[in-house]
Simulated scan of single mutants.
Amino acid sequence: MTTDDLVLYTNPMSRGRIARWMLEESGQPYRTEMLDYGNGMKAPAFLAINPMGKVPTLVHGDAVVTEAAAICAYLAQTFPGAGLQPEDTPRARAAYHRWLFFAAGPLEAAVTAKSLGLLAPAERAQMVGYGSFDRTVEALAGAVSDAAPWIAGARFSAADVYVGSQIAWGLMFKSLPAHPAFVAYVERLQARPAWQRASALDDAAMPNQA
């Protein structure tokens, strides 16, 4: 493979940081195309790749993958040699899919709604996938508390990249409570060399570093 086989369209102030970390974990060569939030993401050439005009967007040959969780799952499956899929047991596979989709669905929806002051009132909780913010946080804290040491068991996986990123941002921006299990989990994740490499690359690309 060459760096032109995998191209990440991203911005250092976006969910593209999740995809960058996943790429670093995968060990595959890739090229980065930095886009700004104005003309870059809305340019016709990029809209032809991702009509949503959003990052991250991953191009792998003639395949296009959008949505950070999908990019994580795609890379784990496409490059199995990196060992980023769960162990091949029903329990590990179930936990992997469960918490990856939980973080991309109920967790992100609940955190976003709370940050915008748009949480569903208690009498309408059944209408939203997260039910209530507190219940969502409780469920996540339980999963992370049970991590041994990772979300799907003994093996670090793509689900940890996505779930861990959501928790790390939640702690940073105080949109999630500083539950001891969250703090310990993020500390384990941030000790990984791939996380450190990815963070250094994106930090260096921040506008104030230009």
Rank of each mutant, 00 (worst) to 15 (best):
R192W: 00
T2G: 15
I71W: 08
L58T: 12
A159E: 09
A143S: 07
F102Q: 07
F79N: 00
G40F: 01
A168I: 00
R192D: 01
A120Y: 05
G142V: 09
V183T: 15
T112A: 13
G81R: 04
T2K: 13
T78C: 08
P106I: 06
Q209F: 01
D146L: 10
V128D: 06
L8Y: 09
V186F: 08
A70V: 12
D5T: 14
R197L: 11
Y30C: 05
M1E: 09
V55H: 05
Y9S: 02
I167C: 10
A82H: 11
A152E: 08
F182L: 09
N208M: 13
A120P: 03
A19S: 13
R15S: 12
G40E: 04
V59K: 15
S145T: 15
K114F: 03
M127F: 10
G117K: 11
A63L: 15
R155C: 05
P121D: 02
A148G: 12
V64A: 03
L107F: 10
Y30N: 04
D36C: 04
V55C: 06
P177F: 05
S199Q: 15
D203P: 02
E33Q: 12
A125Q: 10
Y96L: 00
M13T: 11
A139Q: 11
A73D: 15
A178C: 02
L107I: 11
L58S: 11
W195H: 14
A94H: 07
R155W: 04
A184H: 08
A120Q: 11
M172I: 07
N11A: 12
A139M: 10
L118D: 12
Y96M: 00
Y74K: 04
T57N: 01
P80C: 01
A205S: 11
T112W: 10
G117T: 13
P207G: 06
I18H: 00
V7R: 12
W99C: 11
A168L: 06
T2Q: 14
P44M: 09
I71Q: 06
A191R: 13
S165F: 15
A92M: 09
T89K: 02
L119K: 03
L189Q: 08
L140V: 08
P207F: 02
V55K: 05
F156A: 05
A194S: 13
A143L: 07
W99E: 11
A178G: 02
A82T: 09
A45V: 11
D5P: 00
Y30I: 08
M13I: 12
P80F: 01
F182P: 05
T136C: 15
L23H: 07
P56W: 03
G164H: 07
N50K: 04
F182K: 01
A92L: 08
Y162N: 13
R91F: 04
G81D: 13
A76Y: 04
P106S: 14
V59W: 01
K42N: 14
A168F: 05
A152C: 12
E138F: 04
L6M: 08
V128Q: 07
E33A: 07
L100M: 15
G142C: 08
M1W: 03
F101V: 12
G164E: 11
A43T: 09
P193Q: 04
P180E: 03
A95R: 13
D146S: 14
G40K: 01
G153T: 02
L58A: 10
A125H: 06
P207I: 08
M13N: 15
F102V: 07
Y162G: 03
R155Q: 14
